[in-house]
């Protein structure tokens, strides 16, 4: 069952049609917990992008020797290995980046989006397609996290990327974890609405 999409379509697919946060509704824990600022969203997005691409390629490479009954443990093992490797390499060679990203990278092992992508895509497709799909999913996740972070940081703290833009704090409520669910819900509705409008315009 090889995919008939081009590489570009695979990337766009991850960002728009199958956006991990707003469409697949996966990995809600980090989406709600960490997306309090744009910077946090970006950091976690980068980390997920790396791990997703590396794990997708590994699984696509070894898909024929993975026993179907133990595929989930194997996926977890692969993700854990990559997370550990990236963690150690960053700590050794990029200490400044590690100081900022370290805690996000260690969080990744249990992310639903990565396991799901390995199961749905990488275990059936070629290495090349899995690579582009991984990039798409990673970018989609980063986009989702940053969009959430943008809204929550602006409305919750009145800042963007740490800079004071509004000069006052509109609603502290938005920084709290609870508001993460509201934000995800409202933005999901917003994106669905855009899609409906777009489709209607296309039909007319």
């Amino acid at each position: 069952m090889a995919t008939d999409k081009t590489n570009l379509q695979l990337v766009v697919n991850g960002i728009l049609n199958e956006n991990p946060i707003f469409r697949l509704v996966l990995s809600m824990c980090p989406a709600v917990g960490i997306s309090t600022t744009v910077m946090n969203g970006f950091m976690l997005g980068i980390a997920v992008l790396f791990v997703q691409v590396c794990s997708s390629c590994t699984i696509a490479l070894f898909k024929n020797v993975i026993h179907p009954r133990i595929r989930i443990p194997t996926y977890t093992l692969t993700i854990a290995t990559w997370v550990t490797v990236i963690d150690m390499v960053l700590a050794a060679y990029l200490p400044e980046a590690y100081a900022k990203m370290g805690i996000f990278i260690k969080l990744i092992v249990a992310f639903a989006i990565i396991t799901m992508r390995l199961e749905m895509f990488a275990s059936k497709e070629s290495v090349n397609a899995s690579f582009w799909d991984g990039i798409g999913m990673g970018l989609g996740f980063m986009f989702g996290m940053m969009a959430l972070g943008f809204v929550r940081e602006l409305l919750g703290m009145g800042t963007l990327l740490g800079y004071d833009v509004l000069g006052f704090k509109p609603l502290l409520f938005f920084v709290l974890p609870l508001a993460g669910f509201f934000c995800v819900g409202l933005m999901m509705a917003f994106f669905n609405y855009i899609e409906i409008v777009y489709k209607r315009a296309k039909r007319a």
Binding site: H67, P73, T81, V85, V89, A91, A92
Partner: peptide, 22 residues
Amino acid sequence: RLTVACLLAGLVMGTVFIATDK
């Protein structure tokens, strides 16, 4: 197969650890 997978993962992590520890 699970044993082999674990050993491989351990090998990769161990190598990276030795390479980056210093």
